[in-house]
Every structure is written in structure tokens, then in C-alpha cells.
């Protein structure tokens, strides 16, 4: 990505896709939320969390809407606590795993 002055945007080159957040989010969620569909509170677009834009350099994981780039989710593990900010996600729809003895922990 190049700006009008011709410099390379090193931030854009380090942007990841939301699937890269799966490992850390698995600390909190019992299901894989990267396949969950999230409706952006800012622009209303619904897309899979795994297809969001992930910025992992900052002091938290910052997941942004792939459509409008507004912040959807912030996540950090700090001083023995998990911090989750979901204010940018208007609706999170998570597909339950198919019922089975294993998933029920039996």
C-alpha cells in the first residue's frame, strides 16, 4: 500500500485476517468464534469474524470491520484477567457445534 507521497504503509503490510485471533479468543470462548457472524454496530454489515481485519501490534487485539474499518472487538489478557470489548459488534451469531456426546463432555 502506497500513500500519495510514495511511502510504504508498514501498518497495512502487518494487518492480519481475523482467523489469526482464533488462538487467543479460544481462551475465552468454548466455540470457535472466528466462524461466528458479526453485525458491525457502525455500518450494519454482517461478516464472519475470521474475515475481519486484525491489528495485533497494539496493546490489545483489535478486530475491525472489513467494510467500514471501525473497531468491532478488542481483546487482551493482562494481569491475570481477560478483557473483552464487544461494543462494535451489534449482534454476534455463533453456530453451535453439532450435538454429540463429546461436545456435551460426556
Amino acid at each position: 500500500m502506497t500513500d500519495p507521497t510514495g511511502t510504504v504503509d508498514i501498518t497495512a503490510s502487518r494487518r492480519l485476517d481475523g482467523n489469526a485471533a482464533a488462538g487467543m479468543l479460544a481462551e475465552l470462548f468454548a466455540v470457535d468464534v472466528t466462524t461466528a457472524r458479526s453485525r458491525c454496530a457502525s455500518c450494519g454489515t454482517t461478516s464472519m469474524l475470521g474475515a475481519h481485519h486484525l491489528y495485533a501490534d497494539a496493546p490489545a487485539l483489535v478486530l475491525r470491520c472489513p467494510s467500514c474499518t471501525d473497531v468491532v472487538l478488542r481483546y487482551a489478557i493482562r494481569e491475570g484477567r481477560i478483557l473483552l470489548d464487544l461494543r462494535g459488534a451489534q449482534l454476534l451469531a455463533v453456530l453451535l457445534p453439532a450435538a454429540s456426546n463429546e461436545s456435551n463432555g460426556a
Binding site: P4, T11, R15, A58, A60
Partner: peptide, 12 residues
């Protein structure tokens, strides 16, 4: 170091 939480704005 550059620690970015989002895309770099390109404001002319």
C-alpha cells in the same frame, strides 16, 4: 516501533 490498532489514515 510502530504499534497500530488500525489502518494508517491517508489524509491529503
Amino acid at each position: 516501533p510502530v504499534l497500530s490498532a488500525g489502518p494508517t489514515p491517508q489524509t491529503r
